[in-house]
Amino acid sequence: MQASIQVSPRPDVQYLLRMGDTALILAQRLGEWAGHAPVLEEDIALANMALDLIGQCRAVLTHAGALESAGHDEDQLAFLREERDYRNVTLVELPRGDFAVTVVRNAMMATFFKQLWARLAESRHAELAAIAGKAIKEARYHQQHAADWLVRLAGGTEESRRRIDKALALLWPYHAELFASDAVDQHAHDSGLGPRWGDLQEAWLADMKEIFDEAGLALPAPVAFLSIGKSGVHSEHMGFILAEMQQLQRAYPGGVW
């Protein structure tokens, strides 16, 4: 059994882990649709998006490992940490749910990533700016794809609307965490690494409102609830998804194909 690694608490490394882990866990959830999507074409589309996110995660974690200079590569960072050391937002670790849950979450997350990559394209870290330049094209497509489905399902049948409403009620409260800036954000802001995530909220809400308007949905009211996955305190679902992801690397350390 491969032992766990400890990652530096340096704020720049933590900032990158938040991005990388959020993409990683969302990708894992999207990957769960393989073979189960409503139609074959959507099955492939969701797998494509999962792989886009894995690609972004790999680039970001590799960069985090380089900054940390402790010899951790992307695989070690992705697969050998303890649950409390994962920095993804709670929203992405919630179970896959039905297709409506995936559509609503994808719309929220793709819109967020689109705003984030747009700002990171101006990062003082040339490598991160280059990653962002490539990733923003992917995020734009993910947003269009999710928004399109959101509009269809919200304006579809009574059943599809009921499911969208239910998914929205479930997921919306978790968006607040995305924009709860802290010392890690402030450091990224001051050092020119990237934006404070809180600074993205206005543009995110404007984008979401545009999608919701087209879908005939009202923006849900703000809630006081604040999830704290970014600081390593995860929901009860996190342990299961990590067990599934990590099993191979733990059992066969350094395994590749």
Binding site: E41, A45, H145, D148
Partner: peptide, 16 residues
């Protein structure tokens, strides 16, 4: 491929 309308067909063609 199968799709509900032209817009969906274009997106799915891109993905497939």
């Amino acid at each position: 491929l199968h799709a509900a309308d032209g817009k969906m067909a274009i997106q799915m063609a891109r993905d497939v």
